[in-house]
Every structure is written in structure tokens, then in C-alpha cells.
């Protein structure tokens, strides 16, 4: 099968790959390390890499200064809530596109994606005013609605590419077996598409978790997720590196861990059906 790769070549590639991987990861690593330093050590010149007094002071201080659990919970509710709602709307739509394609299916899909290109800023003011009038400002419900809408096109597209790989005959078999449309979707299509749905879910949770336009502009205190929590460290606290690092680590850790554990599904999902 494959040819033997010389050990020299393998070693060179290994060094290069690890070197670049380390460089790309370094900002995150440095943030994590700094979060365990004291403020003095954090700005010491030359900076120490590992040999400093490890301390949890910054974490304690960040926790006493802001309500991390609440922001965390807001992030969870908003990102999972909007993703689940999006899936609920997108699964039937993607079913229709994949299994009952018409002449305009491609156009509809492209149109949906193009709504994603509409700059949010173009509709910021009306959204702000509507939110104010409906009492949705600074509520999780409001953010769930907005994030569902902005991620819907991507969810539909991803599901569509997965569904297209499922043979239509199986759904026809279900129909012959007496399944109603509802049963067809619940008992046959959805379980068969679990891997695809899982990666769609993951990617959209990450996108929603990190969304930083609407979450910053439509929340104040109550519904603020972690994006807003971290923005509050912008300045002048930004100059307190250890605290900034601790807050940053806390903001990204949940999603970093989730992402690492679900890497395989995620990568599959990321390709948007471009790779067979």
C-alpha cells in the first residue's frame, strides 16, 4: 500500500508541524499561563514562562468582581436555545430541499445563505427599537430569537448536505410502511442523520457562543453572555493582565473543551458537504 516514509523526513515534518501548531496555539497557552500569575509577574520583563508562583488569585478576584455563573448560564441558554430552535425549524426545511427538490430548490438555498450576508449593522437600529418596544432588550428570549434567525441559513445548508447523502429509498420505504410525514421525520430521518445533526449542533453552538455583535448591542446586565462579560474587561482593566487572562480563560474554556472533545464531528460538519 503506502510507501515507507524515511525517518528523517518524518522527523522534519514532525518538528515543523509541532512548531507551527505551537505557534498557532501560543496566544491561548500564554493567556492560560498568565491567568495563574500575579499582576506583577504578568508584566514582568523578561516574562517568565513556567517558573513563577502559581496562584489562583486572579480567578478569585474575577469571581468576586463579576457574576461569572450568570454570564456562563446566559451563554449556555442562548447558544443551545437558539441552536435547538434552529434545528427544529431547519430539519423539515432541509428534508423538503433534499428529498423533494424542485427547480428552485438551489435558488432558495442560495437566497437563504445570502440573508446571512446582510450586515447586521444595517438593521441594528430597528432591531434595537423593536426589542425596546417588545420588552426584549437585555433578555435571553430576545437573543435566542435573533441568533436563531442569523444561524438558520447555515443550519439549513449543513443539514441539507447531510440529508442528501441519505438514500431516498429508505424514506420511501417508511412511507410504504405506513409512516406519516411526522413519523418519517421523527423515527427514520432524524435518527439516521444523528451524526450530521450532531455536527450541525456543535458548530452552531460554537458560532452562537462566540457571536459578538448582537450579544454586545442588545444586552446590558441581565442577559449578558460571556462575550459581554469579557468585553467589560476591555479597559482599563485590560492592563491588569492576570485578571484579564483569568476572565478570558473562563470565557473560552467551556467551548474550547467542548470543541476539542467533538473535534471529529465538528470537522465533518465544517466542510459543508464540500468534501465527500
Amino acid at each position: 500500500m503506502s510507501r515507507n516514509v524515511s525517518t528523517t523526513r518524518r522527523s522534519v515534518v514532525t518538528i515543523a508541524a509541532w512548531g507551527i501548531g505551537f505557534l498557532i496555539f501560543f496566544p491561548i497557552l500564554w493567556t492560560i499561563l498568565t491567568s495563574f500569575k500575579t499582576e506583577g509577574e504578568a508584566i514582568a520583563s523578561p516574562p517568565s514562562f513556567l517558573f513563577f508562583d502559581w496562584t489562583l488569585d486572579s480567578y478569585r478576584e474575577v469571581n468576586s468582581r463579576s457574576d461569572y455563573p450568570r454570564h456562563f448560564w446566559n451563554s449556555v441558554v442562548i447558544s443551545f436555545g437558539s441552536t435547538f430552535l434552529g434545528l427544529l425549524i431547519a430539519i423539515p426545511a432541509a428534508w423538503a430541499m433534499a428529498f423533494v427538490p424542485g427547480k428552485r430548490t438551489k435558488d432558495v438555498l442560495m437566497w437563504m445563505l445570502s440573508t446571512k450576508m446582510m450586515p447586521s449593522v444595517g438593521v441594528l437600529i430597528p432591531m434595537y427599537l423593536m426589542f425596546r418596544d417588545f420588552g426584549l432588550l437585555d433578555t435571553r428570549t430576545g437573543l435566542v430569537i435573533v441568533l436563531t434567525l442569523i444561524n438558520l441559513p447555515i443550519i439549513v445548508w449543513m443539514l441539507y448536505t447531510y440529508f442528501r447523502e441519505i438514500p431516498g429509498e429508505i424514506l420511501e420505504a417508511a412511507r410504504m410502511d405506513g409512516a406519516s410525514l411526522r413519523s418519517e421525520l421523527i423515527y427514520v430521518l432524524t435518527p439516521m442523520a444523528v451524526p450530521g445533526i450532531a455536527s450541525t449542533l456543535l458548530l452552531n453552538v460554537i458560532l452562537s457562543w462566540n457571536e459578538a455583535f448582537w450579544t454586545l448591542n442588545l444586552t446590558a446586565a441581565n442577559a449578558a453572555p460571556l462575550t459581554a462579560f469579557i468585553a467589560s474587561y476591555s479597559s482599563p482593566e485590560g492592563l491588569f493582565y492576570a485578571k484579564l487572562s483569568a476572565a478570558s480563560t473562563m470565557a473560552i474554556a467551556p467551548i474550547l473543551i467542548l470543541g476539542w472533545f467533538s473535534q471529529k464531528q465538528l470537522v465533518r460538519g465544517l466542510t459543508f458537504g464540500a468534501v465527500k
Binding site: 429509498e169 420511501e172 420505504a173 417508511a174 410502511d177 405506513g178 427514520v188 435518527p191
Partner: peptide, 27 residues
């Protein structure tokens, strides 16, 4: 009517038992 497809079109996520029982469950 019942149909048997060229590709068999079995439900891959269900056991044989569940596959056969599916039409009954639907009924």
C-alpha cells in the same frame, strides 16, 4: 401495499426486530 426495494432500504439505525416491527408500530 408493501414494497421491497432493490437496495433493501432497511433502517440502518434499527435492529432487525425493530425494522420488521416498524410498519406495525406505524399502524
Amino acid at each position: 401495499l408493501a414494497m421491497v426495494f432493490q437496495s433493501y432500504a432497511l433502517y440502518p439505525h434499527m435492529s432487525v426486530r425493530k425494522n420488521i416491527a416498524f410498519p406495525l408500530k406505524m399502524a
